[in-house]
């Protein structure tokens, strides 16, 4: 099926066309294309986003209420950060409470969201992604002592929550894998039942070496430099981050006293302080 830009328009029922058109025009910020432009006997209004996508409001006189909270049926508008700030001002001016994101704990750093209901109770998400979502975040844990190398069996994955990394023991040696998802700064978790790192924010998955598995085209999870000291203690430097295009055996630090991280072929990435970025994210969106 040859789709052309695929998504054309969303049809939304409304009880009062005037009221809903004003809401989508003045509060959401869509452009009105015109009235009664489609084959529908009921009064209707077509509105436009900045892409091919359109919203069609159809006045039905009566809109059935959603069960419960409206469940998960929703649609999300994607805005730039500037548009998001303007929309928040418009929402507040129009008497909507835009300060509360009921699912804030599900958002990645730098992901901004407002949940609002239109005049008929249809749930819409208003979404924007700030640059905080792609910055590299330094935990502030500094140098972390993980214990003796013999305490980590081959195949083990040990989470260091404070340092925001996983210590992975592979056949080839150790990897200190940053927990931050490279997609949009969500914190991944280790799912031992499927041997994957998983980001619950947008569903990204990585294998045990931190390489992305799936269709979103994400970069591998970043590495922290680390070493094994003369006594066999594992030491991870969480202040520095290295990017890579995939896994190579040379990235693993040999499991022997004096084992060192080899930067060859890796790119050191500039990092920001996580606390500072989180503060910025509170007011940025």
């Amino acid at each position: 099926m040859a789709l052309n830009g695929a998504f054309s328009h969303l049809v939304v029922e409304c009880a009062d066309l005037e009221k809903s058109e004003a809401f989508y025009r003045d509060v959401i910020g869509l452009d009105v294309v015109g009235r009664n432009l489609v084959a529908d006997n009921r009064p209707n209004s077509l509105l436009a986003t900045n892409t091919r996508q359109r919203l069609l409001l159809v006045e039905t006189g009566e809109v059935p209420p959603y069960p419960g909270s409206g469940g998960s049926i929703h649609h999300a508008w994607l805005l730039t950060i500037e548009q998001f700030k303007a929309a928040r001002d418009r929402l507040e001016a129009a008497g909507f409470s835009s300060g509360i994101d009921p699912r804030q704990s599900f958002r990645a750093v730098g992901e901004y969201n407002m949940d609002i209901h239109d005049p008929d109770g249809n749930r819409f998400q208003i979404q924007a992604f700030g640059e905080e979502g792609t910055e590299i975040l330094r935990s502030g844990a500094g140098t972390v002592m993980m214990g003796h190398m013999d305490d980590f069996a081959v195949g083990s994955v040990t989470h260091n929550r404070k340092g925001r990394f996983f210590l992975v023991r592979e056949d080839e040696g150790f990897l200190a894998v940053s927990s931050w998802c490279t997609h949009k700064n969500g914190l991944t978790i280790w799912q031992k039942e499927s041997w994957h790192f998983y980001c619950p924010f947008h569903g990204a998955k990585y294998d045990r070496k931190g390489c992305y598995v799936g269709h979103m085209g994400c970069q591998p999870m970043r590495l922290h430099p680390m070493q094994i000291d003369a006594l066999g203690q594992v030491v991870v430097d969480t202040n520095r981050f290295f990017g890579r295009s995939g896994f190579e055996a040379a990235q693993a630090v040999p499991a022997e006293p004096g084992g060192k991280f080899d930067e060859t072929g890796l790119t050191e990435l500039p990092a920001c302080d996580e606390k500072e970025v989180r503060e910025r994210a509170k007011t940025g969106g």
């Binding site: 969303l10 452009d31 986003t49 900045n50 049926i73 929703h74 994607l78 805005l79 929309a87 998400q125």
Partner: peptide
């Protein structure tokens, strides 16, 4: 120009 770029996604 509209103040909305696009529909991001639907559930």
């Amino acid at each position: 120009m509209a103040d909305v770029e696009t529909l991001s996604h639907s559930g």
